[in-house]
Every structure is written in C-alpha cells, then in structure tokens.
Nucleic acid binder design. Structure first.
Lengths: 157, 157
DNA sequence: CCAGATGGTCAAGCAGCATTGACCATCGCA
DNA sequence: TGCGATGGTCAATGCTGCTTGACCATCTGG
C-alpha cells in the first residue's frame, strides 16, 4: 500500500511539522534544564515569553499585554511571580500616577543571562553538529518564516 | 544604557527564541487557516499531533499514546473526536479481541491531504523567499535540533 | 488453567493560560 | 470642571490537555 505509505511519510516529515516538533522539544528541554538548577524558581513558558519585552527602563503591564496580544489580567499574575522571585521590580511611573513600570532587577538580569546561556548551550551543541554556516542559514530562514507568518494575513499567495 | 540594550537585543534574538516564536506563529496560522475553511471541524493542536502516527493499516490507541508520551486516557477523547468527524474509524483488531485499530477513512485521508497542503502552502511561500537550497539546509538543521533534543539527556556537553 | 499483564473505558480532578465583567484611581481634554 | 479613556486589580469562569484511580474483558505464559 504505497499510497498509504506515502501519506504517512508526508504527514511525518513536512518541514512545518518538523518545525513544530523541534520547538516543542526545545521548550521542554530548556525548561527542564532550568528546573534542574538548584533553587531555580518554577519558570513556565508563559514567563519566558515576557522576557523579550522587559528591560531596565521599565514597561507598563498594559504595554506588555498589548505586545503579547493578551489581556492585562493575563499578564498580572506572571509579573507578580517575577516580582516574588526578585527577577523584576515594579516602580511608580513618574509620568503617570496610575501606572507601574516593570523593570529588571540586577539579579533578574543575571538570571536572564543564565537562562539565555542555557539556550545558547543547546544552540552550540546543534551548531557543532551542522557547522556555523548552516546554522546561520537556519537562522535566516527562521526569520523568513516569522516575517511571512507575521505579515498581514493573506490566505492565498 | 547599552548594557540594557544589549541584553534586550540578546533576549529577543537568540536562535532558540526565534525557533519557538516561529513555531508558535506557524501553529496559530495553520490552525486559523484550517478553521477558516467552511465546514471544517474544530481541530485542535492535540489532534494534529496524532496524524503523523496514523495510517490505513490501523494503530492501537495504546500505541498512539506510547508514541506521544501520554496516557491512553489522554488519547481516547482525541480519537473519539476524529471518529465523530469521520476522519478515522475504529475496527476490531483481528489478532486481539480486546484491541481496536484506529485507521484513516478515505475521507480522512482527503482531509489530511488538504491539511498538509495548507502547511505546504506556507512552506512554499517561505521557500519562495529564501530559495530551495537554503530551505533544504533549514530542514537539515531542524532535523539536527530534533536529533540533539531527542538524544538521551546529558546536561553537559 | 489461572495469575498477571495488557487494551480500553469511565470518572474525577488538576495545572496552565487565558477570558469577561466589575470596580477604583488617575489622566487629559473640551 | 467634569466626563470619557486609560492603568491596574479582584473575582469568577472556561477551555485545553493532561493526570490518577478504578474497573472490565481479554490475552499470555508458566
């Protein structure tokens, strides 16, 4: 039944599926390596998605929510966790007494750096397998995917 | 504050983060394109993860669960959905009267083919941007990531 | 032949991540 | 000045994707 066989192979091996699988594995691995660290707080994927939008200057929770595409209520408990863990702190916005700015603490920056190094380790392992050049191509194509997927929706080419 | 700036950039641009982001976008896009189809059943990511392990020959639910790394109870409702939608059917295993084999219906195969073509469209769009060669490299590196991440755990190189 | 392993189902429950709705304080502008 | 928009919080709720536990039918090997 080669018809069947062909379909099964196609289903298993589409590049898109590979992409999804790799990401899922990466998520699990990075998080489990993080969890294996002594004294590490129970960081969840929802927290890590916050990091690219944090800095030392301070960002409003509302702004974070907007950038993530979720409600401010969804962000609040995540920020609360990070505050409890000492990763970020909330300071009053000098320009608006309603607002609080979320910004890294020095300790949080250190933790971020460490978390990134875990990702970098993994990346290094893969790069060692495939070579720096191919890794660079990989990265470029990844950016192309993101660009294409981020573009204003058009369902047909 | 270039220290800050550097960290922010680093957090936003690590290849691992890009990989995760691309996968998340791909997931959303593919599923939303699927949902936009008239009369399409409400397929969820959990269902799509089943497909690579289905065929015309038939697989046991237990086997599916084992391959996905979850319990058989987790698989059961997913299979039930697919049966309800006419995508797969369950037939008695001739070699074991306890067991049921889950296998594609012709309609299900058609649906799978269509779903894959949605993924293929996206892939084609990206390939058109970066070229077939670089796309092939991308795929190879993806496989390298998966191989590395699937390997028996070793926390240090 | 029967004891333990295995395939499958039902039931209850939980964690993670998000939602809507209501509310208060403050802001900014006509 | 005062009214609508905005930043933030609390509370309730919902969905998804899984889990554990208990149970029955059937299989398999000593």
């Amino acid at each position: 039944m080669d018809h069947d066989e062909a379909m099964r192979r196609a289903a298993a091996a589409s590049t898109g599926q590979l992409l999804l699988k790799a990401a899922r594995l990466l998520d699990e691995t990075a998080l489990s390596r993080l969890a294996a660290l002594p004294g590490a707080p129970p960081v969840r994927p929802a927290h890590t998605r916050l990091f690219p939008h944090l800095d030392f200057t301070g960002v409003r929770a509302t702004e974070l929510a907007a950038r993530l595409g979720v409600t401010k209520q969804a962000v609040a408990p995540l920020v609360a966790d990070l505050v409890r863990w000492g990763v970020v702190e909330q300071v009053p916005d000098p320009t608006d007494r309603r607002a609080l700015l979320v910004r890294f603490t020095p300790h949080g920056l250190e933790a971020l750096r460490h978390g990134l190094s875990l990702l970098a380790d993994l990346e290094g392992e893969v790069a060692a397998d495939v070579g720096a050049e191919r890794m660079a191509v990989f990265r470029d194509v990844l950016v192309a995917w993101i660009r294409r997927l981020t573009e204003p929706q058009r369902t047909q080419r």
